[in-house]
Structures are given as structure tokens and as C-alpha cells.
Lab assay of single mutants.
Amino acid sequence: KYFGTAKARYDFCARDRSELSLKEGDIIKILNKKGQQGWWRGEIYGRVGWFPANYVEEDYS
């Protein structure tokens, strides 16, 4: 189950295995919004990890 999707506004390079690298334009499935302050958990291309919420724009459609 996921909470919708978000589109990456910027590139983000994961610093460890718990984080999710993003490329601008990627569409991420949002799995959890209750991580550390400002971090969401998501899935993209079969990978799961945490990413900074301010790097994405949530899709409300």
C-alpha cells in the first residue's frame, strides 16, 4: 500500500543503503511520510528507501 506519488524536482544522491537516489523527473511511490523530520520513504524502479521530502512535488491528482 502506498500514499500516492511524487515527482522528483531535483537529483538526490543516496549517502547510504537506507536512502533512495532520485533523478529530476522520477516518479516515486510514497510508502511512508513519518520518517525523520522532512524525510519520506518511497519506492522507485524496485528500490525502497528514504528521501528528502523537499526534493519532490507531491502529485494530488
Rank of each mutant, 00 (worst) to 15 (best):
W39G: 00
G38L: 05
A53H: 13
D16M: 05
I30Q: 02
A6W: 01
N32V: 09
N54F: 06
F12S: 01
V56R: 00
G46C: 02
S21N: 07
E58T: 11
A8Y: 03
Y60D: 15
Y55Q: 06
L20R: 01
D16F: 04
G38T: 03
Y10K: 14
G46T: 05
Q37W: 10
A6N: 01
G4D: 12
Q37N: 12
S61H: 14
I27R: 10
K1Q: 15
T5R: 10
G35D: 11
V56Q: 00
G46H: 04
A6C: 12
K1P: 02
E57S: 13
K23A: 09
S21L: 04
G38R: 05
F12L: 02
R15H: 08
I30S: 04
G49A: 06
T5I: 09
I27S: 08
L20I: 07
I27K: 09
P52T: 02
R17Q: 13
I44V: 14
W39E: 02
L31H: 08
Y10D: 08
Y60E: 14
R47L: 05
G25H: 00
Y10T: 13
D59Q: 14
Q36E: 14
E58L: 09
E57N: 10
L22H: 06
I44Y: 06
G25L: 01
A53C: 12
G4P: 14
L31N: 04
D11G: 09
N32H: 13
W50N: 07
P52F: 00
A14H: 05
C13K: 10
V56G: 05
D59L: 11
I28F: 02
V56K: 04
P52E: 00
V48H: 06
V48M: 08
L22Q: 00
E57H: 06
K33N: 03
G25W: 05
F12A: 05
K33M: 02
L20E: 01
S18W: 09
K33D: 03
G42D: 07
Y2S: 13
I30R: 04
P52H: 03
Y60M: 14
Y55S: 10
R17I: 12
Q37V: 13
F3D: 08
F12Q: 05
D16N: 12
G42F: 00
Y45W: 12
I30T: 00
E24L: 02
F51L: 02
S21F: 04
D11A: 12
F3R: 11
G46E: 08
R47T: 08
N54V: 12
T5W: 10
D26V: 05
E57T: 14
Y10P: 01
W50Y: 10
T5A: 12
A8L: 03
P52L: 01
F12N: 04
I27W: 08
K34P: 11
A53E: 10
N32R: 09
G4Y: 10
V56M: 00
D26G: 00
